[in-house]
Amino acid sequence: MPHHTPRTEAYGDHPDQWVRIVGDASAELVFCFVHGGYWRPRYTAELMDPLVERVVRDGPVAAAVNIEYRREGDPAAMQDDVRTALHRVRELFPDALRVAVGHSAGGHLALLCADEVDLVVALAPVTDLVGGYGARIGSGAVAELMGASPAERPEAYAAATPRPTSTPTLVVHGVDDDRVPVDHARDFARQARDLDAPVDFFEFARLAHMDLIDPDGPHVALVAAWVRGHLRAPRKDAS
Rank of each mutant, 00 (worst) to 15 (best):
D118G: 09
T84F: 03
L123W: 02
D118P: 09
A85M: 03
A158T: 15
G140Y: 08
S149D: 14
D58C: 02
A124H: 02
T169I: 06
G140M: 10
G59I: 00
A143E: 15
Y133C: 04
P75Q: 06
V55I: 09
V142K: 04
A151M: 13
A156P: 07
D118A: 09
P125E: 07
Y157L: 13
D74P: 00
T165E: 07
L112T: 04
A122F: 08
A158F: 12
A76C: 03
E53P: 09
D49A: 13
R88H: 10
R57P: 00
T44C: 02
A160T: 08
G132K: 07
R98Q: 14
V65A: 06
V56Y: 01
G140T: 11
R153A: 09
M78A: 07
P60C: 08
A45V: 11
P125I: 05
G106Y: 10
A124P: 03
V55F: 01
Y43D: 15
P94S: 11
D81A: 01
T167L: 13
V65K: 02
L129V: 10
A124S: 10
V120T: 07
D58H: 01
I67Y: 00
Y133M: 10
P150H: 08
H108L: 09
W39R: 01
P162Y: 02
T167W: 08
M146Y: 08
G134C: 15
E72R: 00
R98H: 15
I67K: 01
V171F: 13
V171R: 13
G147D: 04
P125R: 05
P94Y: 05
R42P: 11
R70L: 01
R90F: 13
L109C: 04
T169K: 12
P60M: 06
D118M: 07
L109D: 03
E152I: 11
S139K: 14
P150V: 08
L111V: 15
R83F: 03
S149H: 06
Y69K: 00
F93Q: 13
D128A: 11
L86D: 10
T165I: 08
P94A: 14
P75M: 04
P168R: 11
A45W: 02
H87T: 15
L119I: 05
A159P: 11
S104Q: 09
L109F: 02
D49N: 14
T84K: 05
G106I: 10
P75W: 06
L119G: 05
L123P: 06
T127Q: 08
P168W: 14
E72I: 00
T161E: 07
G140D: 12
A76Y: 12
E144D: 14
G59E: 00
D128T: 11
E68C: 02
G140P: 05
V117I: 13
